[in-house]
Amino acid sequence: MKIKLNFISIKNQIALFFGGYFIFFLLTVLVTGGKSLLPDTLYVFSALIATLVGLLVVKLYGFKHPRGQVLLYFSTGLFLWFIAEATWVFLDFFSLEKPYPSIADIFFILAYPLLFIGLVKEIRIGKIRWKSQRTLPIIAIATILGLLVFYFGVYSAFNPEDDAISNVFSIFYGLSDLILLFAGLLIIFVIVDYRQGKLFAPWLSILAGIFLTLIADVIFSIYEEAYMQNDFWVTKIDLLWTGGYLFIGYGLALIALSLKEMREKIIANLNGNKKKKRPKS
């Protein structure tokens, strides 16, 4: 039986999918209480969804295309996070090994530089216009957020009671989040120029996803022990990580839709003009 959704635009169908996925995930988290396999599987798959959508956009731009390469770095970073999340869940539920610190962290950490390179490439393509009206507030926000991330994510992350590997990973996560924070704030300059264009909302969504991930990372670094002990409230930061993946996936899906729609319009305009021009008899 085919279900036709013609009465809902494709854009709204995409929003329904990602929104519905998050709500379903939220319900499984609330129903199951603490850590459970079903919500964790949904959590892992949210990273996979974002990855697959990213690869679709890469294909639309072209693998050698500058923007295709931006999103290839993004998608590869997301894929590494998917592997990391899957490894974490496997270790947490099916192995006697602690999921943190573990091999999962290697995949988590490898993703950050790729995401950073993607953001920097997009900044270079986007050509930032430095205006004092925008620059000063962003510098102020960057300073405050940077200090917060540094304090909670790097300085406070060091715990003399933890082993050396845990401390190294914790500090590395904090530094990676700091770098990603600054790249994310810089890209605001690029996307502000996109306002009133189709690309504004997608990039805003991607940024929202990145910032949700950073917030979750910082909270994890503060309450790591409580998280590992499956504290009811602290483990709810999974909602932020999942929300992060879904916002990124949603943004990438909107880019794909925008490219497809614009391609069809451009072709229609070109064909429309060809039809109008007929040779005089």
């Binding site: 731009y61 072209g62 003009n273």
Partner: peptide, 20 residues
């Protein structure tokens, strides 16, 4: 067009510009 819309669109665009 290539930079903003991708390589596929740019190819189609180039082909359609001759009479414009």
């Amino acid at each position: 067009v290539y930079l903003n819309f991708g390589s596929g669109t740019a190819q189609l665009y180039r082909a359609g510009l001759k009479d414009k």
